[in-house]
Nucleic acid binder design. Structure first.
Lengths: 110, 110
DNA sequence: TCAATTTTCGTAAATGTAGAATAAATACAT
DNA sequence: ATGTATTTATTCTACATTTACGAAAATTGA
C-alpha cells in the first residue's frame, strides 16, 4: 500500500472524529463506533489508526487542558485537516459515481 | 479483523463488478479500476481480492464459454450475491448517516 | 501513594500489492 | 493432422501495510 491511501477502518475513524467534533479522543472514538456500528474495536486499534492518519496528514491533534475529574491522563484531541476532508470527500463521490453506474439488471436475480 | 468485513479495496472491486455486469472478470476489472480511479492495481491484487470475496460469500463465479478471439484461457465471470449487495448497501448507508452528523463547525477553519 | 483514565507498545492476524509461473485457447507452419 | 508460437487469463508465492487485541506505562486528582 502506498502510504497515502485511506483504509476502510481509517475512513470510519475519520468520519467519527467529525461527528464528535470538537471532543474526539481515543476512548470517545471507541465508544462512538460501538454506538453507531455493530463493531467494538479494541482501544489499541483506534490509537494505531489515529497515529497513521496523523502521519498521513489527515488529522491533527493537540493536548487538552487537564480536566477537573478524578484522575486521568490529559486527552489528546483530534481534528480533521483539509487534506483529510478531501480524502473522505473523494471516496464518497467515487462510490456514488460507481453506484450510479451499476445497471438494474445486476440485481435482478437476487 | 473478523474475516467478515469488507476492506476498502474489496469494496471497490465489488462495485466495479456491478458496473461491469455481466462481463466482470479479472483483467476487465483491473482495467475498469484504472479508468475510473487514479490507481492501477496489479492483476494479482485483483485476483486475491476476488478469491477472498468469494470465500466470504459476497461473490459467485462461473466459467464463460470460450470466445472466438485470438487466444486466451476461459474467462471466469463474477457476480455479486445477495449478501454482497447487502454489505455494500450497509456501508453506503452507514457513511451517509455519519456524514450527516458532522457539524458544520468541524469544517469551519479549513 | 492510590485510584482513575488515557495513551503507548508489542505482537498477531487480515487485507492489499506485486510479479512470476502456469494454463488454456487460437493461429500458423510444416 | 500435429506441433509450436502467441495471446489472454488465472493461479501461485512472497511480502508490505493495515487492523486488532490486550497488557503495560504514563499522567493526573484525591
Amino acid at each position: 500500500m502506498k502510504g497515502t491511501h485511506l483504509g476502510e477502518f481509517e475512513e470510519l475513524v475519520l468520519l467519527i472524529i467529525g461527528v464528535l467534533y470538537p471532543n474526539a479522543y481515543g476512548l470517545a472514538i471507541k465508544q462512538e463506533i460501538a454506538n453507531q456500528t455493530k463493531r467494538s474495536p479494541a482501544i489499541g486499534a483506534i490509537h494505531s489508526a489515529l497515529s497513521r492518519l496523523e502521519d498521513k496528514g489527515f488529522l491533527k491533534s493537540h493536548l487538552a487542558d487537564a480536566t477537573h475529574e478524578r484522575g486521568g491522563r490529559r486527552k489528546k484531541l483530534y481534528e480533521i485537516t483539509a487534506s483529510g476532508k478531501q480524502a473522505i470527500e473523494y471516496n464518497r463521490s467515487l462510490r456514488n459515481t460507481l453506484w450510479n453506474q451499476i445497471p438494474e439488471l445486476a440485481w435482478k436475480k437476487l
